[in-house]
Nucleic acid binder design. Structure first.
Length: 464
DNA sequence: GCATGATCATGC
DNA sequence: GCATGATCATGC
């Protein structure tokens, strides 16, 4: 094997095509997937380099196809009922704290190496060995002008923390598209820089966030019209968050009657609060489906506070698939993905006694320990119940004669943050069970979802 | 008053 | 037809 042999992007794409449809086990010419390598996603990139592009594995600082300035990334994508998404963030190069201190975005090693990325995509199949998964497509990714503006800001946030002696406080949630994620064993390994500054600075890598890549691949795979909220020129002046809040803040204090008229919302739709915010942002479709929200991992949610200062309803999420959930590891689960690293925009509406008034936006992300301790508990409990088949606990006949089913899913009373409750059109709106219910023999059960408790949401709103 | 199970209304 | 965001209704 020798140096890269591809003189043009076309040649590169043509060569990749010879691998499309092939399983990793067929491309694995150096038997990297035997034994312990069977479960190691790190070897997939090497297999593509050797088995598809026929060059030897290296870890040089320049891009993989140096003559073309193209870096190769091998990534898994998922197909779910919500559409296609990237399985995880895309790691770029290591974050060298000493050199980042010296480098602006434009002259950073990261940008030099990664401004053109060639993605080799495979479809990730839950529960299967990597050898059984196949390459399905490729694309060359170049960053748009607007993307680069957001990434510049992200880079600056990370760099400023290092310059200010706060490198140990870097978190993935600090930034929107470009992240500094932990690297090394157990996500807690200290960098050699830690000794130099005498702070617990972790080993990190630059990475493109999962949401960013998901939006990119959605544009590629679907014909969905994805709306943008901001222009590249605006991003030169202000951050994404500043622009979003800048559009919304003028409407603080407006009553529902006023908002309805302003944004021509006539229906009693339960999604009308979302329509008001869409109007404020100037988008016609769903706020959560815009380019910037998907890329930046922003998630819009309405919170209504009653005149007594309380929240009446818990916060729901999309229903989960019983069969899928029992096969999912915690960090791959929909529930984890929905909360981890997401930045929630709570649009708060307060009841003034007559109607709801738009109060403010609260940006929030879930603390790691609550998700990984309490969330994990509820998730594991749910998984055990589904696998045991002990779902229905009994029945209750109401006065009107209706028989209600009582279940064993994690209850509100058992956890201060999360619980599991139905989220369906009605009781007959069901999803297949992995194990039939022992008491009733039911093979499908009313769709359920995770709910965040309203008391917890209220406590979050009271922070600061 | 709250926990729990069930269901509504819209829009894609 | 059904996913989603949201709300209702009973009874302890």
């Amino acid at each position: 094997m020798s140096e890269p042999l591809y003189k043009s992007i076309d040649e590169l794409i043509k060569q990749f095509q010879t691998g499309v449809g092939k399983k990793f086990s067929d491309l694995d010419i150096n038997h990297r997937l035997t034994g312990i390598g069977r479960k190691d996603k790190g070897v997939l990139g090497k297999i593509v380099e050797e088995g598809v592009f026929h060059y030897s594995v290296n870890s040089r600082p320049e891009a993989d196809f140096a003559n073309l300035g193209i870096e190769l990334k091998t990534s898994g994508i998922l197909r779910t009922r919500n559409g296609v998404s990237f399985k995880e963030r895309v790691p770029l190069n290591n974050l060298n704290y000493r050199t980042v201190k010296e480098q602006t975005f434009e002259d950073s090693d990261m940008w030099h190496k990664c401004q053109k990325l060639f993605f080799a995509l495979y479809e990730y199949l839950e529960g299967k060995d990597y050898g059984d998964m196949s390459l399905i497509a490729s694309f060359l990714h170049k960053f748009s002008e607007a993307d680069i503006e957001v990434m510049k800001r992200d880079y600056k946030i990370i760099r400023d923390k290092i310059l200010n002696g706060e490198a140990h406080t870097i978190s993935e949630t600090d930034t929107n598209y470009l992240a500094a994620c932990t690297a090394g064993s157990g996500h807690g390994k200290l960098d050699s820089y830690a000794r130099e500054v005498n702070l617990p600075v972790k080993q990190r890598k630059f990475a493109l966030k999962n949401g960013y890549m998901t939006e990119v691949v959605r544009r590629l795979f679907t014909n969905e019209d994805i709306e943008s909220i901001v222009k590249a020129s605006e991003l030169k002046e202000r951050s994404l968050e500043e622009i979003i809040l800048g559009r919304i803040n003028p409407y603080i204090g407006k009553t529902e009657t006023q908002l309805k008229e302003m944004f021509n919302v006539t229906a009693k739709s339960k999604s009308r609060y979302e329509r008001y915010i869409a109007g404020m942002l100037g988008v016609s479709g769903q706020v959560n489906k815009t380019d910037e929200f998907i890329k930046g991992g922003f998630e819009f949610k309405t919170v209504r506070i009653e005149s007594n200062g309380k929240i009446e309803q818990n916060m729901s999420f999309p229903y989960f698939d019983f069969k899928e959930i029992v096969n999912q590891e915690w960090e791959d689960s929909d529930f984890y993905q929905l909360l981890a690293g997401r930045k929630y925009l709570f649009a708060i509406f307060k009841n003034n006694g007559q109607e709801y008034v738009f109060d403010r936006i609260k940006m929030w992300h879930i603390p790691d320990n609550i998700l990984n301790e309490e969330g994990y508990k509820v998730f594991s409990e749910l998984k055990n119940i589904l696998l045991s088949g002990n779902i229905v606990r009994g029945f209750k006949t109401q006065k009107n004669g209706k028989v209600i089913r009582l279940n064993n899913f994690p209850k509100s009373a058992s956890n201060p943050y999360f619980h599991v409750r139905p989220h369906a059109e009605d009781r007959e709106d069901t999803c297949d069970l992995p194990v039939p219910d022992k008491l009733t023999g039911l093979t499908a059960y009313t769709k359920q979802c995770f709910w965040i408790k309203k008391e917890y949401i209220l406590s979050v709103l009271k922070e600061n």
